[in-house]
Design a protein around this nucleic acid. Structure first.
Lengths: 340, 340
DNA sequence: AGAGTCTTCCAAAGCGCTTTGGCTTTCCCG
DNA sequence: CGGGAAAGCCAAAGCGCTTTGGAAGACTCT
């Protein structure tokens, strides 16, 4: 059943039927009702390919997926996706993932924009002066950045959590508990979130006249193994830290294992706080010692990004609106006063 | 730059240019070269929307993503996706994720097929007599099932690993080591993979005149917490098992924690084997006691599914070809002879 | 009553590609 | 040398929608 048939059946022109269906004002309400009715009864659904060719709109949102033998997709992605899906489902939006060589995403962005494959895109894991952000900005496709880029010299729409504030609070708590030597096991410090977290910690320490020793900072891909290695390295130093802030639960698993291997107790010998993106399959309260966390649901962020993307597509949202979500500090058993 | 302009520029008809570009035989090789050349020089790329409307082919593969507030996307998905992306990138295939109400995926399948949004789909986590498989089969869109459905009374193309064989081998090893009371902490037993794993274990036990006590089988969503709970329940029974097979690394984390909480040593008191889908961020060799596993890379499976999907789209693969991959049994420190 | 303004609808021109059906031209062979 | 086949090209008809540029009729106002 296509438009032509439906129009014929109603003894109307395709124009009128199309307009009735799409809510244009220049059609009699009575006629509109008839059309809507017939459309529903016959299960008419406009052909998206045709609509797309005519309008240039696809009804999909895009994401350029960096891939490659050496590239691992972050498990956070799947939770973000859950949230995105929650919203998208309710609005019949599809998501298209365009795999791209991690080292050359530009080609892919250009392709999906030139081809009008998607109406909007989102960008995740941005870095300062991120080329992708500058690119989609000039390309003129609606977009939202999940996270922040910095120092590019222009504004853009984003959704981020207050990473700096979160780690500031975490560090402040640790300092209040008497810790003087703090450590940070961070994610890839080329990404903004990691920079913000480090900045937050340093600021909290500075407020008490303390500093974050460079030897007490690790920046690694967030795997269990890297968490373990970083923790061992830290804890085997002569001036070992008494408290560790860690950028992910998965790394925290490694930290806990390292402490156990070294015969150190949490929180007796070292306090531990990690950032929790809220995975359903790994919960901080279930760590052998319940883990204190800075918590922010990445799933909710996914839903919100989808919502704002939809708003941008339909013109409801404009401009470079930035949105920063506060982060909860949840104190559990893994932090205690500094030893000694 | 569109076809019309390019044709005009070459003083050829659109027909000829189109055919030259698409490799049709009825065009002079010399002409073809000229066309190809001009196309490349001017960076001509056929508009996919137009091509799509004309041919009905979209150049994308689809996946219906079950979503909902209570639905968690499995973290395995992201690894599968990595593999799929690896292949898809090299072939400029995009993946479209269509979020659907987990309880009504049929509507979405019908929509994406009716709309010709994708050229092929894959189905994951199938159950016996899976309605989705029957549906896409009758809908007539090329597809591949990742996993197996059973008892539907028709054949279909799939890629699966030998779950039954894997758990058969795992159980056999444990029995050889003197274990008599084995337990299974399985995934959702409405899914085929879980059924196969249980079957494999039972078969191995039966071969030695043993059985798998129903009280020694758990079927749960594969989270750390569920692994912990299941393990505690098992290990606190009077006839507690001396060996556990576990369907995922994440659950195994919970099992290890439970053992520790109960003061049981691995492998001194209980042996543990888990299935490993090969995550980059959580490795069995890094468990406090290196974990024995049945191993199969889900990432490679993703790449293979993409490859076969592409082959089906282009007509290179036909029929109901099933493909079953063997699974490695990797023995590490977490298994030992039965205590006593 | 005539002019102007809405309201409501329509025919037809795109959107940019593929593909059908045919038309020349060349080539081969009896 | 004439007829048939093959090669190489083209015009035009889709694909199914949106949107432009009217047009007809109803209504208002002077």
């Amino acid at each position: 059943m296509n438009l032509k048939q439906l129009a014929h059946m109603l003894a109307l022109s395709q124009t009128t039927v199309s307009r009735a269906l799409n809510g244009y004002p220049e059609v009699n309400e009575e006629t509109r009702r008839r059309v809507m009715d017939a459309a529903k009864r016959h299960g008419y659904r406009p052909n998206p390919s045709a609509r797309r060719l005519a309008t240039g709109k696809s009804g999909m949102i895009g994401y350029v997926l960096p891939t490659g033998a050496a590239v691992d997709i972050d498990p956070h992605f799947v939770e973000f996706l859950s949230g995105l899906g929650d919203y998208a489902r309710a609005h019949e939006l599809d998501l298209v993932l365009s795999p791209a060589d991690a080292d050359d995403q530009e080609t892919t962005y250009r392709r999906i924009v030139a081809n009008r494959q998607v109406d909007a895109v989102y960008i995740s894991s941005p870095r300062p002066v991120d080329r992708r952000v500058a690119l989609v900005n000039t390309l003129g496709i609606p977009f939202i950045v999940h996270g922040r880029s910095e120092g590019s010299g222009f504004d853009y729409p984003y959704l981020d959590i207050d990473n700096e504030g979160a780690f500031h609070e975490a560090a402040r708590l640790l300092v209040q508990l008497g810790h003087r030597r703090l450590a940070l096991i961070n994610g890839d410090d080329r990404e903004t979130f990691a920079i913000h977290r480090e900045r937050g910690m340093r600021r909290a320490l500075a407020a008490s006249g303390l500093t974050l020793d460079d030897r007490h900072v690790s920046s690694v891909v967030m795997t269990e193994e890297n968490g373990y290695r970083a923790a061992r390295r830290l804890l085997e130093q002569d001036d070992a830290p008494t408290a560790i802030a860690c950028s992910s639960l998965i790394m925290a698993l490694g930290v806990v294992r390292a402490a156990r291997d070294l015969g150190l107790s949490i929180p007796g010998d070292i306090s531990l706080i990690a950032h929790d993106d809220v995975f359903p399959w790994l919960k901080p309260e279930n760590f052998s010692v319940p883990l204190s966390t800075t918590r922010s649901s990445i799933r909710l962020a996914g839903a919100r990004v989808a919502e704002r993307l939809a708003a941008r597509i339909s013109g409801l949202e404009e401009g470079a609106r930035g949105e920063v979500w506060p982060v909860d500090l949840v104190v559990r058993g893994s932090v205690a006063g500094a030893p000694g």
